[in-house]
């Protein structure tokens, strides 16, 4: 065997490692997931969490917050929140939506003013007696796209200004049948 010159290191044989890596890469590529998924919990109204019994009826009725989603915008309803939502004496369809769309007729899901809805829900949550309230009922019209539902659920879940559990608004969503 030829005598090695001093200072000349013997090269490492990387071929087996290369083999291993080449096999690992296709396997990992197959199992890789580049989008992360999440879930939003919801229940049907009939089998949803039971509403607390009316202990202090008349005096302090429960909030029973509901958000109607129409092709004009959001209509927010509940007990004791008339000042915030600016409810008028008019009832039914004449009253118009509480939060109209930014574009007439709500042609796209972006036209729904979810920022304003979120701001209003933060105010409602801050009212005395509403800290324990966590339920919201969504009542969408049949033609409303599913994406708007998800956007509304996003808007009613968190107060963006506060992180963690403190920022929770109304995380328990019940979807009602609607009209």
């Amino acid at each position: 065997m030829a005598k090695k010159r001093l200072g000349e290191a013997e090269e490492l044989n990387l071929v087996p490692i290369m083999n291993l890596v080449t096999i690992l890469i296709p396997f990992l590529l197959m199992a890789a997931q580049f989008i992360s998924l999440a879930v939003i919990d919801s229940t049907l109204p009939a089998i949803g969490p039971p509403q607390p019994a009316d202990q202090q009826e008349d005096e302090d009725p429960p909030l029973s917050l509901s958000i109607l989603i129409t092709d004009e915008g959001f209509t927010v309803k509940g007990n004791g929140i008339d000042d915030i939502v600016g409810a008028t004496e008019e009832e039914g369809e004449d009253a118009g939506p509480t939060i109209p769309c930014t574009v007439q007729g709500c042609p796209t899901p972006d036209a729904y003013n979810t920022e304003e809805l979120n701001r209003m829900l933060v105010e409602i949550k801050a009212l005395p007696g509403n800290d324990e309230e966590e339920n919201v009922i969504l009542v969408p019209e049949p033609k409303i796209p599913y994406e708007v539902l998800v956007l509304t659920m996003d808007a009613s879940r968190n107060d963006p200004a506060r992180k963690g559990d403190e920022g929770l608004l109304f995380p328990f969503v019940v979807i009602a049948g609607g009209a």
Binding site: I35, S36, L37, A38, V39, I40, D41, S42, T43, L44, A46, I47, P109, P140, E141, P142, K143, I144, P145, Y146, E147, L149, V150, M153, I175, G177, G178
Partner: peptide, 30 residues
């Protein structure tokens, strides 16, 4: 699908509810 109208979702939810499935978990992309 995000473009589906609520009427289809409602019928699917109602059917699932009748078939003993009452806890819905809507899958979304984070």
């Amino acid at each position: 699908d995000r473009r589906l109208p609520f009427s289809v979702i409602r019928e699917v939810m109602y059917t699932a509810g009748q078939a003993k499935f009452g806890e819905f978990k809507f899958v979304v992309i984070q």
